[in-house]
Simulated scan of single mutants.
Amino acid sequence: MPADVRAQIPSDIVEIERALSRISHLLNRARQHHQIAVEAGVSVDRAAVPILRLLHDAGPQRSGDIAARLAVEAPHVTRQVQRLESVGYVERVPDPADRRAYRVRLTTAGRDAVERVLGVGCQSIQHALSAWDPGEREQLATLFNRMVDDFVRVAVERGILPK
């Protein structure tokens, strides 16, 4: 971004972007994923975790819908689903709305794996924020969710994410 454009951006927005960039870097480091996977006792690719999380939160999905919701290419999802299927974390089931299509859903083992990964992740966050007052954590959660909702809204408006 040219310096003159950046100079017009409020300093709080610059600081928010900087913090988000740092968080993203910390959360997406291969070493961080490996440590969480080891602690959770789950062997899964870092790229598969968002798919498992989506299936955990939203239930069975078509592969194309997974790709659209995660804003990734369909072949990426196909590869990850094949890997997750080979380790028994997901299965393909007929789509009740269209028997020619299928949905991907978590197996019992997949649900257990996701819950263990999420549990370790939550413990890590709890440890990092242990000195924070519960009210501050609640406020942060509220503001994060509001921010994410606004980011999603803008991404939908821009055609980056489906409606």
Rank of each mutant, 00 (worst) to 15 (best):
V114I: 10
V81M: 01
I9D: 01
A71K: 11
E15S: 12
Y89C: 05
D149T: 10
W132P: 03
G119V: 00
P94I: 02
V104F: 03
P94H: 00
V44L: 01
Y89V: 02
Y102R: 08
Q82Y: 06
P50I: 03
D149Y: 10
I9M: 08
V49Y: 03
Q32F: 14
A37F: 06
P162V: 01
L27E: 11
G119S: 05
R83F: 01
S63A: 12
Y89F: 15
R29W: 00
G119Y: 01
R103V: 03
L55Q: 11
L27D: 07
P134G: 06
R53H: 14
R100W: 05
L106A: 03
A47W: 01
L143G: 07
G110K: 04
S86H: 08
D65A: 14
P2T: 07
I16T: 09
G121I: 01
V14E: 06
I9L: 12
P94A: 03
A30S: 13
A109W: 00
R18K: 13
T142H: 12
D57R: 15
I66T: 11
G119F: 05
A141C: 11
I16G: 02
E115C: 00
H76R: 13
S24K: 13
L140T: 14
R53P: 03
V44P: 04
R22T: 13
T142Q: 13
V93L: 09
G110D: 02
D133H: 15
K163N: 13
V42N: 01
P96H: 02
I160G: 02
A128N: 06
V152L: 14
G59Q: 10
V49R: 03
E138D: 14
D112P: 00
E73P: 06
L26G: 09
R111N: 04
R99W: 05
L106S: 04
I16F: 09
Q126I: 04
V120F: 02
L143R: 15
Q35E: 14
H34C: 04
Q126V: 07
V152S: 06
I66D: 09
R6H: 07
